[in-house]
Design a protein around this nucleic acid. Sequence first.
DNA 1: ACATATTTGCAACATAATTGCAATAACATG
DNA 2: CATGTTATTGCAATTATGTTGCAAATATGT
Lengths: 145, 145
Amino acid sequence: MDNNITRFEELLVKNGLKRTGARLQVLEILSGRDSATSQPYLEQVMGKVVDRVTLYRVLQAFEEKGIIHKVLDSHGTANYAICSDGCDAHQHHDEHVHFDCDNCHKIYCLESVKIPVPKVPSGFKVQHLNLIATGICSACTDKVN
Amino acid sequence: MDNNITRFEELLVKNGLKRTGARLQVLEILSGRDSATSQPYLEQVMGKVVDRVTLYRVLQAFEEKGIIHKVLDSHGTANYAICSDGCDAHQHHDEHVHFDCDNCHKIYCLESVKIPVPKVPSGFKVQHLNLIATGICSACTDKVN
DNA sequence: ACATATTTGCAACATAATTGCAATAACATG
DNA sequence: CATGTTATTGCAATTATGTTGCAAATATGT
């Protein structure tokens, strides 16, 4: 689907970023996966073509612009997923639940599942919520049966 | 309150750990704070007396025994807090909400706030929940006013 | 006081992240 | 489509963070 390419180019231009190989490649990889992608994985896949430092900077730029969002797994490793529409440099709207599968270690963005707002003690002002559920994902549950 | 000392000693013995200086010091520091304590902070405070490696191992042992639990903040930095009763080597019961203050960067264990269970898509089996709220804590809200 | 097993500190190593800078590539402009 | 400007990249060096093996020191039961 080469349609993606122009779509990604637009996304970059819209955010004032130049259309470079490294950036397009990151967007392609992330969009081609059904779950969040870890930095180590990206490094492994792109490592021969793109410098590690460049990858750091691309991901940082994307996150700042609201193109992708970062999810830390239980080991503190960064995973990235493309933001659904509605994010920009000023605001991230990624307040959906993330699901970290114990079996296949994929991290799913459950876009449809909003984080239930907890009742915090008075005085505390919640600005942002981050919920990671761990367990067994749908695909792994199927495999076992 | 020197009562703490014997309390901590009991805690160590109960878990088959020897009563050493490093361990007692960690317990004292953690129990003397109203929020979770970051590893870098512990290292800074204890660094002159206790080796960095020892600190890692003490924290790891405590976590395995269910004496403390680890909370990763938004930067992936480890923070530790003493578990409320009911945790042991086999089971952690720390499914309360954590609150990460944007202003003072303290991480509070809101022991009284259980994590609301989200409705995940069918096929997904949730085993554990981890919710970190960020915002402004009670103490910082007061300061501003 | 002594024997034993645990714990610690040290040194070395391994991994991950950051910075400065020069070379390169993107792209607006003429 | 050549060219100047600015953003981007790669490299090397540095810093930070986490891990391992082992010998010395320490806690604790007897």
